[in-house]
Simulated assay, not measured.
Amino acid sequence: MYNMITWLFGASFRERIAIAMSYTLAIVTIALGLQLKLASKSPNPAKWNTYSQQANSHLYDGLNPAKPIAMPVISHRGGDVPGIDEAGTLARLDYNYARGQRLFELDFSWTADDQIVVKHDWKERSEIPTLEEFLSESPTDHTSLSMVYDWLVAHPDAFVVTDCKKRSLAAAARIRMERPELVAQFILQIYQYKDFELVQSQGYQNVILTLYRCLVSESANRIADFAAEHDLFAITVPRSRSSDPELPRRLNQLGVPIYVHTVNDNETALDLQRRGFYGVYSDSLTTETVGRIAQRKPAEYPDKTVFQ
């Protein structure tokens, strides 16, 4: 304030220039700080046209060429580790990868400081932690999205099926902006029909429509019609929809795999396969164990099965 008064009442020309420059620098610094703060947040999915694949085609030149195969078992939460009830995510991934699994479903949640971690939800907590707080609670068990990135780099034939119950489209945008070369290793689960075009426009070519949140009562015909018009990797239904014979019948005609979650015993998995369901999400089963029982032939899904 003193400088401003001096400037107005009798400062020399050189002093006025110096004071004006100092105020200009302060304003520019504040503006840049605000811009960086805004840039640190995920883009609004409603404005994803700004981040279209065409406009950012250079980001997709190095995408992982590996293509996921629809295996009969997707490891739920990365799969169990026998004898360790609360095994960390990376331990789960390592153990079940060694058992031959290549598709891993993981739950993602947002921290208080707008970061993404592997976590089903925060219902048991009174406050949502920051990323640093969450990781410090259990450095060997708690897992951040960046740690999942590193694991995927080391396992280029593995794929993560996402289950992000809040701000799922923003999470997809975050992944694409942070690590566009890993987009091909993420299979996005969407919960509504309208999300399909948004995620595909960002380079996510493998999309699962899961019914458990918004479409659990949707008719088999409506779901099958959507599958016929859109290139889905698969459709996933909760156990409550597994008694519906029409949906697997229609999807089998289209060649679209249909999964049921969550199934942890071979007898149920075999029964579901006999009734036309392609596979299951499971904590304990693997493609090898289910395949040994079912002996499904590749001709049934020539482009998507791994059974021999």
Rank of each mutant, 00 (worst) to 15 (best):
M1I: 05
P72Y: 00
I293N: 10
E288N: 15
L215F: 04
N49G: 13
Y278E: 11
S126Y: 14
Q308E: 13
D231E: 15
E105R: 07
R92G: 05
D265A: 04
T6V: 00
L169N: 01
I258P: 03
N206Y: 12
I84Y: 01
N44D: 15
P245G: 03
V207N: 14
W110Y: 11
P65Y: 12
I27V: 03
K194A: 14
L8V: 01
A234Q: 12
I17A: 06
T162H: 01
V160K: 06
P43Y: 02
N96R: 06
T262Q: 05
P82L: 04
R174P: 00
K47P: 07
I128G: 03
D163P: 09
A11R: 09
H120K: 07
A220Y: 12
E105W: 06
A112L: 13
P45Q: 06
N266R: 10
P298N: 04
C164K: 05
S136A: 11
R275Y: 00
E197C: 08
V290E: 00
K297L: 10
L198F: 11
C164G: 04
V148T: 02
S109I: 02
T50S: 15
I19V: 02
L38K: 15
P245V: 05
P43E: 10
W7E: 07
L103T: 05
A154I: 12
P245Q: 06
T236R: 05
P129H: 01
L254C: 10
R249H: 14
T24L: 11
Y281F: 15
S217Y: 13
Q253D: 15
F233H: 11
A234K: 11
N44W: 06
A39S: 15
P298A: 08
S75Y: 08
K37H: 15
T89E: 00
N266V: 07
T305L: 07
R92F: 04
S42W: 12
R239C: 09
V216R: 13
R77A: 13
P156D: 11
S146R: 14
M177S: 09
S240P: 09
S284W: 00
G255R: 05
V207Y: 14
E137D: 06
Q202D: 11
I17W: 05
V306A: 14
I17L: 08
L103I: 11
T262N: 09
L25G: 02
D195Q: 13
E181T: 12
A184C: 09
I235M: 03
L232Y: 07
R296P: 06
G78Q: 04
H261M: 14
T305W: 02
A31G: 08
T305S: 12
M21T: 06
S126Q: 15
D225E: 10
E137S: 01
F159W: 01
R179N: 12
Y23A: 08
N44T: 08
I30G: 03
A172F: 09
Y212M: 00
E229K: 15
R239N: 01
V263P: 03
I27S: 00
N64W: 13
E132L: 04
F108V: 06
H58V: 13
